[in-house]
């Protein structure tokens, strides 16, 4: 008994020592700014002046009563998130199944190629794809049968929406693939062999055996992509700049503009808090839901 306590105390101290450097970074850049934003959210402040005026919940009242642009951007981000989450997870899982069915020594190349887009920064990707949508596609469209590529991709709301979805799905599906491959490798081969004795179709095997067993990966992947797309800023700001006529403005862009170009720091911060609560609720629901589908073999 005495001994166990000693070990426990020792390891706690060790953990604290390892966590401290992390906390030293995390507290000043995440925790303190977060509470500062909560504080600023109750103020009227232009971000320049030394004086801040306390106005209670007025900023929140503004958000919920007279800010159609904000809710438009929330609706846009929501639709984006649904489309990108579904597509990049389906693609990621498909890639994972394809790649892991290949011989071990041939998996390296496709894995690297598919993961590559995820390593590039969002702003650069936006500029590259802007060029592709506006110039490269125009050239390709001259090939008979591919004329549909020549449409105005970034000049109309519908195609601009899908342009962002295409680029994001391309970027994220490599990462989800890696997580799914890890999940697939973790499946005990005994279970699969046992299942095959019953002779299920490959489809039946996937939905009844494989998918339930990789649900933990699904939870992680959906959560990751969802939070990524909800808070997206860099890619959109370089690909469409929120256009055409503001139809692709994400929530992050809206609140950045509120704080920095319209000089309403208080309102911008309040929006950030509202958005934070919104994402928190949706993520909790999602994690709760997918967790409930997880089973243990």
């Amino acid at each position: 008994m005495k001994q166990t306590g000693g070990v426990y105390r020792k390891s706690l101290r060790g953990e604290a020592a390892f966590m401290l450097p992390m906390l030293l970074c995390f507290v000043p850049v995440i925790i303190i700014p977060f509470f500062y934003a909560v504080y600023i959210g109750f103020m009227r402040w232009n971000g320049i002046s030394q004086a801040k005026e306390f106005i209670g919940l007025l900023n929140y009242a503004t958000i919920f009563t007279s800010d159609p642009q904000f809710w438009k951007s929330v609706w846009f981000s929501f639709r984006q998130t649904v489309a990108i989450t579904v597509i990049s997870n389906v693609l990621g899982l498909t890639f994972a199944l394809l790649v892991s069915s290949m011989p071990k020594n041939m998996q390296g190349l496709p894995r690297t190629l598919l993961l590559l887009p995820n390593i590039m920064g969002g702003v650069i990707m936006g500029f590259i794809w802007r060029f592709i949508f506006q110039k490269v596609f125009l050239s390709i469209a001259e090939i008979p049968g591919l004329g549909f590529l020549g449409q105005s991709w970034l000049g109309e709301p519908g195609p601009a929406f899908w342009a962002i979805v295409i680029v994001s799905a391309w970027q994220y599906s490599g990462y989800t693939m890696i997580i799914y491959i890890a999940g697939l490798t973790g499946i005990d081969s005994d279970i699969k062999e046992a299942a095959r004795l019953d002779g299920p179709s490959p489809l039946k095997e996937f939905f009844s055996i494989t998918l339930p067993l990789i649900m933990p990966s699904v939870t992680v992947c959906i959560f990751w992509v969802m939070v990524k797309t909800f808070t997206m800023y860099d890619l959109v700001s370089s690909l469409t700049v929120g256009g055409p006529y503001g139809t692709t403005t994400t929530v992050s862009m809206n609140l950045y503009e509120e704080a920095f170009s319209r000089n309403n720091y208080g309102l911008g911060s309040a929006k950030a808090i509202v958005f934070f609560v919104f994402i928190l609720c949706i993520s909790l629901l999602q994690v709760h839901f997918t967790r409930s589908k997880e089973i243990e073999a």
């Binding site: 000049g155 109309e156 256009g243 055409p244 006529y245 509120e258 170009s261 319209r262």
Partner: peptide
């Protein structure tokens, strides 16, 4: 007012698009 120039620009573009 702050932000008006950009929103007016968006309105002009929406007019140009026939929106």
């Amino acid at each position: 007012p702050n932000g008006a120039a950009d929103e007016i620009g968006d309105a002009i573009i929406a007019y140009a698009a026939g929106e």
